[in-house]
Amino acid sequence: MIPAELLRQSRIESVAQSLREDIGDGDITAMLIPEDRVSRGRVITREEAIIAGRAWVEEVFRQVDPRVTLTWNVNDGDRANPDQLLFSMEGPARSLLTAERSALNWLQMLSGVATTCAAYSQRVAHTGVQLLDTRKTLPGLRLAQKYAVTCGGCHNHRIGLWDAFLIKENHIAACGSIANAVAEAHRIAPGRPVEVETENSDELEQALAAGADIIMLDEFSLADMKKAVARTAGAAKLEASGGINNDTLVPIAETGVDYISIGALTKDVRAADLSMRLETAG
């Protein structure tokens, strides 16, 4: 779970950066419109989508012009149908047009992530597995994307390198063994989750003996995953990783592993198709 204050600060900074890159030293096209003209607008989705990103849209308009008012017809996590009204807005026409692209960029990108996650999670809803995101996020947008993952019914892995241990092959080699790496992790930060990546049954045994909280089964066969589930019997949580695609997702979930981590939840983003229409109010 992303701490609320961390997410809020990230949102403010990320929106500000998105506005700087779009507006620069001023929206010269918006200057064609009389400064005192007030308009109304509406945003619809052109396709079915799981909505995510309301707070980012609100932050865009707040930073551009706090006089703009928004009226929402959906909440984050809602499923929207083609041509459905998502929200309407009213305020200075210049401000509505200046904020338009940045607001839609945030909403369509985050809704795209949420929609992808919903499709994955629905396929394994009959199992007890949790689908996890990874650190394979768009640079600078990690917290926003990880928030959107939760709107789509999936879950967050560690946020970054600071909140949990994930001991991989190179860490093990540098520490000398799995046992040494896990022991050092417990010494450095008692209570922090310690996960170990394993590539075979021998490494699985070492991770269990060392007291790992979570054991990643990297590129294990289905047969070996089932054996690992039987072997651990609750002694540690198991996470499947590597080789996850449309064909392997459900069979892997049905092995009984606790988690499946999928980089595609955030790194292969297809934005939702949204549209804004403006009308003059006065």
Rank of each mutant, 00 (worst) to 15 (best):
Asn170Cys: 09
Ser10Val: 04
Arg67Thr: 15
Lys267Asp: 04
Ile188Leu: 15
Arg270Ser: 14
Leu70Gln: 03
Ala125Ile: 09
Glu219Ile: 08
Ala185Trp: 04
Gly263Asp: 07
Gln206Asp: 15
Glu47Cys: 01
Phe220Ser: 01
Asn81Ser: 14
His157Cys: 11
Leu96Ile: 12
Leu131Tyr: 00
Arg62Phe: 13
Ser111His: 01
Asp36His: 11
Ser14Met: 14
Leu110Gln: 03
Ala271Asp: 01
Arg46Glu: 14
Gln9Ala: 14
Leu6Phe: 01
Thr150Leu: 10
Asp22Gly: 08
Ala4Leu: 15
Phe165Ser: 10
Ser275Pro: 01
Arg277Ser: 15
Glu279Ala: 12
Cys175Ile: 00
Cys117Gly: 11
Ile28Trp: 13
Ala212Thr: 07
Ile2Pro: 05
Leu7Pro: 00
Ile44Met: 06
Pro66Val: 09
Thr127His: 00
Phe165Cys: 09
Ala179Asn: 03
Glu197Met: 01
Arg20Tyr: 12
Ala272Asp: 08
Ile12Phe: 13
Ile172Cys: 04
Glu205Ile: 08
Gly256Gln: 06
Thr266Pro: 08
Ala4Phe: 12
Pro139Ser: 11
Ala281Pro: 00
Ala173Asp: 11
Asp202Gln: 14
Glu197Gln: 06
Ala80Ile: 05
Ala185Thr: 04
Arg270Pro: 02
Thr29Phe: 10
Arg79Lys: 15
Cys154Ser: 13
Leu107Tyr: 04
Leu265Asp: 09
Thr69Arg: 13
Pro92Tyr: 12
Thr69Glu: 14
Asn75Thr: 13
Met276Thr: 03
Ile50Lys: 08
Ser121Trp: 01
Ala173Cys: 02
His126Gly: 08
Gln17Trp: 12
Glu21Ala: 13
Asp22Cys: 06
Lys237Trp: 13
Ala49Arg: 06
Asp213Ser: 10
Ile252Lys: 09
Pro92His: 09
Asn246Gln: 10
His155Phe: 15
Leu204Thr: 06
Glu59Ser: 05
Asn170Thr: 11
Ala30Pro: 07
Ser221Ile: 03
Glu254Ala: 11
Tyr147Thr: 02
Ser111Trp: 00
Ser221Thr: 15
Ala4Glu: 14
Pro3Tyr: 12
Val15Met: 03
Leu217Val: 03
His186Gly: 09
Asn81Ala: 15
Ala235Gln: 15
Leu166Thr: 05
Ser221Cys: 07
Thr98Ala: 13
Ala164Gln: 10
Ala179Arg: 10
Trp162His: 14
Gly256Ile: 11
Val129His: 03
Gly160Arg: 01
His171Leu: 04
Ile252Val: 15
Val60Trp: 05
Gly176Leu: 10
Leu141Lys: 03
Trp162Glu: 02
Thr115Asn: 08
Arg37Met: 14
Ala236Gly: 05
Arg192Ile: 11
Glu254His: 04
Lys136Ala: 06
Val15Asp: 02
Met276Gln: 10
Gly153Ile: 11
Ala233His: 14
Thr255Met: 08
Val60Cys: 10
Cys154Ala: 15
Asn246Ile: 02
Gln122Phe: 02
Glu100Asn: 06
Asp224Asn: 12
Ala30Trp: 05
Ala16Asp: 12
Glu58Tyr: 03
Gln108Trp: 09
Thr150Pro: 04
Ala235Val: 03
Thr69Val: 15
Pro34Ser: 06
Lys168Thr: 13
Gly191Ser: 02
Ala55Val: 14
Gly191Thr: 07
Cys151Asp: 00
Thr127Glu: 00
Lys227His: 13
Pro92Ser: 09
Val194Ala: 07
Ala207Ser: 07
Ser121Leu: 05
Gly77Asp: 02
Lys227Ala: 15
Cys151Ile: 06
